[in-house]
């Protein structure tokens, strides 16, 4: 997993609320057995006409946002299915950070496993950054994980909260499984204990 420290980039505004994982990556693209290659189908049904041509109005099709690395979104981003294909598609497109007032739990967790930082900010801050994002490539947003701030193009900083463990893993690009396997003796002893206390399991 790639580390995430600081990121300065163009942010795409997506003010819609409840952007769900079916919108992020429709199910016809879940049939892959790989993690890569989903970026071209990110937001597929909003991004392309049935004949495969681009829908010019869609934000990521506009020249200013083709290189976006950040999305500023409406409330409850990533709701719906647990598909990790959603963060895989975002990442493959080049998105490393999503900013919203709230995220669905599973999506939120999945982001961290893939080097994407989901940032929760209060409505006023998201509104301000959304305005910024509307200015396209002229407005760059800086996300600093170490200091837990998002700075808009006007220089105003917004502080955000993030779980210390998740932050640590993301800053260092650490793989969860490796970390957990260091605790294998604790798992062994739990299993021994459970075999007695809940033998039917």
């Amino acid at each position: 997993m790639d580390k995430f420290t600081t990121l300065t980039g163009v942010a795409a505004p997506m003010p819609l609320v409840n952007i769900d994982t079916d919108m992020i990556i429709p199910k016809q693209f879940l049939k892959t057995i790989q993690r890569s290659g989903l970026g071209k189908n990110l937001f597929d049904e909003m991004r392309y006409n049935p004949d495969g041509s681009e829908i010019p109005d869609f934000v990521l099709n506009q020249p200013a946002y083709r290189q976006a690395q950040i999305i500023v979104a409406g409330d409850n981003f990533g709701c719906g299915s647990s598909r990790e294909h959603a963060p895989w598609a975002l990442l493959d497109f080049g998105i490393r950070c999503v900013i919203s007032t709230s995220f669905a739990d599973i999506f939120y967790n999945n982001c961290f496993k893939n080097g994407i930082l989901p940032v929760v900010l209060p409505p006023e801050a998201v509104a301000a950054l959304m305005e910024d994002a509307r200015n396209g490539a002229n407005a760059r947003i800086t996300v600093d994980l170490e200091n837990q701030t998002v700075t808009g193009s006007d220089g105003r900083s917004h502080a955000f909260e993030v779980d210390p463990f998740k932050k640590h893993c993301l800053l260092n690009g650490l793989d969860d499984i490796g970390l957990t396997l260091e605790k294998v003796s604790a798992i062994d002893s739990y299993e021994t204990h459970a075999a007695q206390s809940r033998p039917w399991v």
């Binding site: 599973i106 967790n109 779980d163 463990f165 969860d176 499984i177 957990t180 396997l181």
Partner: peptide, 23 residues
């Protein structure tokens, strides 16, 4: 009972545990 992503599926397969914070 709850849903998990594919990285967590791999984590559970390998360790039979999940890293969780209480809701």
């Amino acid at each position: 009972a709850h849903g998990i992503g594919t990285s967590e599926v791999e984590h559970v397969l390998a360790t039979q545990t999940l890293i969780q914070k209480k809701s």
